[in-house]
Nucleic acid binder design. Sequence first.
DNA 1: TATGAATGAGTATTCATTCAT
DNA 2: CATGAATGAATACTCATTCAT
Lengths: 196, 196, 196, 196
Amino acid sequence: MRKRPRQQRSRALVDSLIEATIRTIAEEGLEAATTVRIAERTGVSVGSLYQYFDRKEDLYQAAMESLVAELQAVVDAELANLTEVTVSGFARQLLEHVWLLLEANNGRYLNVVRYWAQLDGLQLIATLEQKALGALSLYLLHHPPQKPQKDLPVKAYIFVNSVMLTLVRYISDPPPNISRTQLIDGFVTLSEQLLV
Amino acid sequence: MRKRPRQQRSRALVDSLIEATIRTIAEEGLEAATTVRIAERTGVSVGSLYQYFDRKEDLYQAAMESLVAELQAVVDAELANLTEVTVSGFARQLLEHVWLLLEANNGRYLNVVRYWAQLDGLQLIATLEQKALGALSLYLLHHPPQKPQKDLPVKAYIFVNSVMLTLVRYISDPPPNISRTQLIDGFVTLSEQLLV
Amino acid sequence: MRKRPRQQRSRALVDSLIEATIRTIAEEGLEAATTVRIAERTGVSVGSLYQYFDRKEDLYQAAMESLVAELQAVVDAELANLTEVTVSGFARQLLEHVWLLLEANNGRYLNVVRYWAQLDGLQLIATLEQKALGALSLYLLHHPPQKPQKDLPVKAYIFVNSVMLTLVRYISDPPPNISRTQLIDGFVTLSEQLLV
Amino acid sequence: MRKRPRQQRSRALVDSLIEATIRTIAEEGLEAATTVRIAERTGVSVGSLYQYFDRKEDLYQAAMESLVAELQAVVDAELANLTEVTVSGFARQLLEHVWLLLEANNGRYLNVVRYWAQLDGLQLIATLEQKALGALSLYLLHHPPQKPQKDLPVKAYIFVNSVMLTLVRYISDPPPNISRTQLIDGFVTLSEQLLV
DNA sequence: TATGAATGAGTATTCATTCAT
DNA sequence: CATGAATGAATACTCATTCAT
């Protein structure tokens, strides 16, 4: 990023550009997300875009980061008022909310996640991994399992990645013989067995 | 594909083009995989490329199909000489071999798989899903579980996607605190619990 | 033309190529008339095409010449069994037949004539001019006009060009308020007045 | 057209591009009128060309329209200060001016007109037909013919097309035995007879 | 002689980036 | 600072022509 804008105006513009980037990728695809198009949707000129982002990639990167922050915030809020006592209930609630999030705003998040390979978005999932690991630790602290758990980081890694990536895949291309309910139930079962 | 190459020469060229496509994507990235570059690496002119593929996308598609076929062959071979009797052993062996495959040839497969979103490669995973579902059914037939299994398609879907996608992610970007052995163990555990 | 083919086989092939050229231009347009396409429609390879025509343009040229010859033959035949005694009748018959010719075989002639500018086809009309001039002279010899005609070449030039070019235009793009009959009547009137 | 150029600069550029298109077609032929060549002759880059014209065809179309407008203007001016009282004089004056126009600027108009088949330029002649029909009607109103005229549209159609197309042909490829004067005289005669 | 695969220059079009206004 | 016209390298794809088999 070329500048660290402190003024209101600048910060608002940067945010608008990032938002336009996300919406454009989500609604029109990565190929349509040209600098001119993004500037257009933001309501400014390309020149202004380049006032704040040296290269297109920086803008994409910023969009990714913004998305991660949003996802994090949602998950954080979710974890905060977590009242469930069973593992199943905990997992189910989490799954439902992540699902809703991915589907939200016309797949705003979903379509960006699909391009993570191009957008260097691995950090996105890495962040969520940390978050989930923390949540699991916290949960297990309050609800000690029958037998002591080991390899918690590995389990968290597997669980988070499996859920996230499979969810994205399912929403992107749902197979006809598997319903949303079945998938969630499947993952809930998985969570139970993983943490027995 | 523009022509149905029956002759030796043509078939060889088509294969070379597909191979060059895979290698180029793997080594230089999807963006570098231009028609001229691929032809160049194949050692022919662009014109020759277009003698066999109407559009660049068809070439990508063929590369994807080739990859699927290879993966399938490996998994098939694996299933053929399946001598293991425990679920764990079965899963472990499968995992090891898929892993080897994905890492093989400087991540030749891996890097292509990473672009599946752009390359309409969903079929790749869909095919493997079918294969895995068949293997699971076969396995359970010979080794009946304690209690009757239901939702086998759902479990297969979750298992295959979780393993495949998480594996790709792990190999692409391995976290320092999780070893390969740990990950495999984790998935083996998962397979046991999934099929109890 | 590269060769003067004396053998049956060669001559037949050259003719086939020319015919395929005309049909391709007529049915698929000038842009679609590529050497490969023409060879394909002829049922031979491009290589064979180049055995007889050094350049694509030579083939086009030959097609034009062939067309001219055909048109000439038709008009000649027409003039041969000309029995009409009035100028009007003579003109009307001629017009009707030329019209039929231009429309014949799915506009086979028409569509080629439309490209005369690109195909250096001016000679086509030049030839017909000569023919028509001859016919007029012949006609006037047998049916002497009231007053001696002068500027016969000019009148022939104007008449032939006007009729030919306007006819092509009319058939290519007929205006809704002018019927075929009206147009022919108009030209017949023109012929009468031109030769009084 | 991609943009509606309101500013001085833009409008001038669009005009330059159209002018370059006409000149290139006229001087180098339709095949040489590539986007790069046209941009080059305009003194701008290809990119600039595409800022104002979505496709090459749109540029050709604009060139055609520009030409039509110019021709119309000339004919209009001609009709405005029409002082002639005889049909012959009227026709002769019109012919002389159209001729001059077609020959003007190294055959700038002429060479473009020759490509009307490819350039969808039928509208060009259609417009002139309308103009001529109007002129004829106006003329006949002020100079009523001996006997009432019918089929005026047909006569106008024949006259305009015959004159225009034959003129283009004559200028493109003048036959040695017919002088310019003779041709004009021929058409003047034609006009007299057509409107008796 | 016939074939048709191979060539590669040529063409339209796009788009990230710059810079004069 | 903002603008958006201008740039031109890059890319997919075509097609006349050649030449090894």
